[in-house]
Amino acid sequence: MQFPERFSNLPEYAFPRLRSLLDTHAPGGEVLHMSIGEPKHPMPPFVADVMAASLSGFGQYPANDGTPDLLTAITGWIGRRYGVGLEADRVMALNGTREGLFNAALALSPETKNGARPVILMPNPFYQVYAMAALALGAEPVYVPATADTNFLPDYAALPAGVLDRVTIAYLCSPANPQGAIASADYLRDLLALAEKHDFRVFADECYSEIWRDAPPPGALEIAARTGADPERVFVFHSLSKRSNLPGLRSGFVAGGAEGIRQIRKLRAFAGAPLPLPIQAVSTAAWNDEAHVDASRALYHQKFDLADRLFADIPGYRTPEGGFFLWLPVPDGEAATLRLWKETGIRILPGAYLSRTVDGVNPGEGYVRVALVAPYDATERGLTTLRDCLYGKD
């Protein structure tokens, strides 16, 4: 029996790789998981009541695109957060952003571009679904370094014109996973101008947008509206997993041009799974409330400050501008991860598992990713132990 060759060169997903690296070794202390970005802050207080009041909805097929109440809540939030007014036909509810980031590429990337194989751009390191979307389409994934030299954001404009002319989609994550870099308004403006010049779409993965240090990150829709960009040029993806500490709800949305959303909805109608109505009800309440978001952000600020105190003297340490990961420099990320596990029981992720090797270079190889999702006391214990183990005690 044959299998598709297009996935044959993919490395194993990051977390199975991590299990293979660590699980044959006993932990060297009390186990603490700091490898996966699963928020542990309290859920919004209204979740249980809204869910209980909506249980009868499990007896009905849910609305494919999102209920009117949910779409109104989402467009209302976009208006309050970014100052952009959207009609409901420019939004669709998602089972988390991963579904949307994959399926929107299937719906919107053509089979060829200028008579050649299409290209899909992504930062390197990156969220792994970007590459899977490109390969599923038969497109060429182009991994663009997002390193300290480029402020941990991809410099797409530096690519050859011949490559840019084949691009159909450029993925961007801001705040960036894993580095925490934020794309400025100027960066987004330049990217949209590049997309207009070379006729491609920008897929802005903004699921960490509400976890920030100093100021709310600008959004791609906001800059597109401000500059008068073609609405079909930009599609943004948001989630309640990080914003509202609801990773198990699997709820988010995509917003963009009306025609593009129509195509994404059409694909969903044939091959997707809409959110159950009780989940849509909880999602509606969550997008309509900011108090729980502000409270959660305040907790992250405490952990950011803790990280700055502990790692300020580490050469190459950079304070994350947003998101909830530390991107810590080490000589060898895999060796550091294994050592930390065997000596302390703390579980982190090698940076190379989030990157691809291009021309012999893996930009994540000299880093580890550490998730600041646990409660403060556990985070303090984990970061202090990590510092002492990997960088030496004061």
Rank of each mutant, 00 (worst) to 15 (best):
M51A: 13
A104R: 00
S20T: 14
G66N: 09
M92F: 12
F58G: 00
V31I: 11
R98E: 05
P42S: 11
V84D: 07
H33V: 06
I74M: 13
S54N: 10
E87T: 03
L86C: 10
I78N: 01
A88I: 03
S20R: 15
Y82L: 13
D49W: 03
G66Q: 05
L101P: 01
S20K: 15
R80A: 06
A107F: 08
G59W: 07
L21T: 04
S56M: 07
G28Y: 03
L101V: 06
L55Y: 06
A88S: 14
E30Y: 01
L94H: 05
G79D: 00
R80F: 00
A52D: 02
S35E: 15
V50E: 11
G79K: 00
M51C: 05
M92C: 08
V91K: 13
A52P: 01
R98C: 01
P44E: 04
Y82T: 06
L101R: 12
P62M: 04
F102I: 11
A53W: 04
G96K: 04
S54H: 08
Y82Q: 13
A88M: 10
I36G: 08
R80D: 08
F102V: 11
D69P: 03
R98K: 06
T72A: 15
Q60I: 01
S35C: 12
M43C: 04
S35R: 07
G79C: 00
N103T: 13
G100P: 01
E30V: 05
G79F: 00
A63L: 10
V47L: 09
R80V: 00
G100D: 07
P27R: 12
R81N: 11
V50L: 05
A63H: 14
D49Q: 13
N64F: 08
D89R: 10
A73Y: 00
L22F: 15
L101S: 05
I78V: 14
S35W: 09
T24M: 03
A63I: 02
W77G: 05
I74W: 00
S54C: 04
A73E: 08
L22R: 10
M92N: 09
V50P: 08
S35V: 05
F46C: 09
I36D: 14
P27N: 05
G37S: 14
L106V: 09
M92L: 15
R90N: 14
M92Q: 13
L106H: 13
V50I: 15
G83Q: 07
M34D: 01
P45G: 10
A93L: 05
